[in-house]
Design a protein around this nucleic acid. Sequence first.
DNA 1: GTGAAAGCGCTAACAT
DNA 2: ATGTTAGCGCTTTCAC
Lengths: 373, 373
Amino acid sequence: MSPRQGRQTPEADPPSAQPQRRATLKLVAESLGVSITTVSNAFSRPDQLSEALRERVLAEAARLGLSSPDAAARSLRLGRSASIGVMYTDRLSYAFSDPGAVLFLQGVSRVCEANGQQLVLIPSTSSADAAATAVGRSTIDGLIVYSVADDDPVLAAAIDRRMPLVLVDQPRIDSLPWIGVDDEKACRALAEHVVSLGHRRLAVIATEFDRDRAGGRATKARQEAITFSTTAARLRGYRAAVEKAGLSWQGVPVVEARENSEDNGYRLATALLRVKNRPTAILAMTDQLALGALRAAERRGFIVPDDVSIAGYDDIPAARVLTTVSQPHEEKGRRAAEQLLSLLAGRTSPPRHQELATTLRVRVTTGAPPRSE
Amino acid sequence: MSPRQGRQTPEADPPSAQPQRRATLKLVAESLGVSITTVSNAFSRPDQLSEALRERVLAEAARLGLSSPDAAARSLRLGRSASIGVMYTDRLSYAFSDPGAVLFLQGVSRVCEANGQQLVLIPSTSSADAAATAVGRSTIDGLIVYSVADDDPVLAAAIDRRMPLVLVDQPRIDSLPWIGVDDEKACRALAEHVVSLGHRRLAVIATEFDRDRAGGRATKARQEAITFSTTAARLRGYRAAVEKAGLSWQGVPVVEARENSEDNGYRLATALLRVKNRPTAILAMTDQLALGALRAAERRGFIVPDDVSIAGYDDIPAARVLTTVSQPHEEKGRRAAEQLLSLLAGRTSPPRHQELATTLRVRVTTGAPPRSE
DNA sequence: GTGAAAGCGCTAACAT
DNA sequence: ATGTTAGCGCTTTCAC
C-alpha cells in the first residue's frame, strides 16, 4: 500500500470534467480571480503581496498541480537556468566506470546542491555536429569541461557559444579558468622513484592518446600526436625520468589502452610480459590499468615486486597496495564548480588557474629488479 | 530595458565597436538578409531549404557564435527539452559514493546518450519547499525516482507536478512504471542460507530507516516505521527466515547505519561483536557495510567464517569474497531510462512493472558457526 | 498592493 | 523555397 495513494483519490482527480488544462500561472490566476503578476509574485517575490493572499495563491496552485513556475519559460525570461553542465571525454557512460571521474562528479554535485544548482551531464557523440548540438541544446548557464581531447569538437562548440567555461584536466587557455594538477611532474617523480630502484627495462601502459583510440603499441610519431593532454603530460613525465637516468626512451615500449579498465590493463600487461626481454617495471597511467597489470603478472607466476614492479596513478580506494600518485579528484570537482558559480555570479574570481598538489605514494608493488637481470 | 539586465557592468563588454548583440536566430537572419524562419529551418528542418542556402546560414551562425538555437526558448516553444532527470535519496553527492547508484547512473546515461537526451541530476534538500522547487525548476521532460524515502517531499512534488515518472527501488504505485527487484525474497533466501549453516545468534546492520537517520540500535517500533522501502523489504526478508527457523526475531539486534559506508559497517560491527553473547553471523544490508564488518571482525582477531560469518548485499566488484546477493544495477538504470523515454514518446509501454532477478552468491565469508557455541 | 502589457527566442501554421 | 505571424509561460516595468 502506497503512502501516496491519497493523492489519487477521486476528489483530487475527477474523471476529467474539463479537458485538464496544463497548470500555469495563468490558470491559477483565473481560477482565483487575480492577475498573473500576483501569482508570479507569490512564487518569486513574497514581499510584493500580503501573506494571506500569498497563502491562498500557493494553496490553489498546489491544488491545480503547479509546484513552481515553468522552468523553460522562466529560464527564457530570466536568461538563467540555475544549472551547470559537465562535459566529459567522449562517452558519458564511461565516466561512471572511472573512479576518478566519479569522485570528480561527487565534488561538483556537492557544490551544486549547496547552491541549489542543477547538474546536467552532457552526453557526447563522435560526430562534430551532434556534439555541438548536445552542448547547444542544453539549458545551462555554464560548463565544466573535464578531460576532453584537445581537438574535440564539443570543446570548440562550447567556446564558440561563448559560454562561461571552466577547464579541468585540459590544456590551459589563458582566458579561461583552469583546475588541474601537474601530471608531468608527478609522473616524473614516480618514474624517478622506479628508476632509482635499479630498473633498466621499463614499459608504459598509457591511457587513450586521442579520440580514435587506436590502441596497442605506439610509435614515436603517434606519441607525439597525442591529443588527450593528460596522457601526453604523464608520458612526458615518464620520459623525462627515463632520459635523465641515461636510458633510451626508444627502448621503452608504450602501449595504448583503448579504455581505462582493469581488463585492458590485464591484456596489455600480459602481452608486455610475454616477450623475451620483458620489462622489470610497468608504469600504468591509472590505477585500474595497474590493477589489471598486477593480476596479469601474478597470473603468469611472477611475484610483485620481486619479479616485476608495477606503479599506477590516482590512488583510488580499491588500490591500497599500489605505488601510485594521489591526486584530489573530489576537490577538483568542488573547485571547478565553485569557480564556475563565482564566474556566473559575476564575482571577481579567485586566481583563475588553480594547480592542486599531488603526492607520490610508495607502496608494496615497487621494489628492486630481480638480481639476475 | 531588456530582461538581460545581467550585463549591468559596462566594463563587462570589452571596448568593442558594436554592443556585441547576443547571437540569436534573428541576428543571423538580419545579418544575412533572410527570414528568421529560414535560419530556424537551417537548424531544425534541413529539407525545407536548399543545401546551398543552408550552408551559408550555418556558416554565418557559426561566425556569430551561435551553435544552435537557444535551448530555453526551444524547450518553451516545443514543450520538450530532450532531457530527463534523476532524483536520488537525499544528498545527490552520496550517490557517487554508493557503487550501486553509480552503476545505476551508468545504465541511465548509456540510454541517454544513445538517444540524445541530457541527464539532469536533481539535488535534493531537507526542506519540503526547497525540494519542490528543485524539481519544479528543472527543465526536464520526465523523472526517474530512485531510492527515495516513501515520504520524501520531493517525491510528492514530482507526483503533484504530474510529470512522467518511473520509480526504481521504491514502493510500487499502480499507475506508475516501476523497476526493481524482490529485496524481501532475496534477503530471505540469504538469511535462510545462513540459518541453515547452524547459526542461532544473528545480527543485522541495516541501511537508513528514514530521512532522519537516527542510527544505532533499533527498537521494534522503529523497525515498523521504516520509510526507505528497500531497507524495510530487506529487513522483512531476514525476519521471515529467522522466524521460519523458529528463532526469536526479538533476539536479533538490528542496528541502523546512518550512511552506507565501510566505516559505518566497521563501527557498528565492532559494537555488535563486543558484547558477551556476540552474534555468530552478521547480515549487512550492503556490501560496503559488510566489508566494514569484515574488517572489524578481523581487527578483533576473529577468523571469518570460522568465528563469525558475514553476508552483504549488492555484489559490488570490490567485494569478491563476500557471500552476498547479486542484483543488476546497471540494467535497472537502462530499463528505467528506456521505460521513461518510451513513455515520453507516447509509445505503448512494455509491462509497466518490471521485476529483475537477483542471485544468491555463496562465497567464503559464510560458514558453520563455531563448535563451542 | 495589484494589474496590463511588452517581449525573452523560438517553431509551426499558414501564407506567398 | 521563403516569409509573416501567433503564441509557448514567464517576469518586469510602469500604471493605478
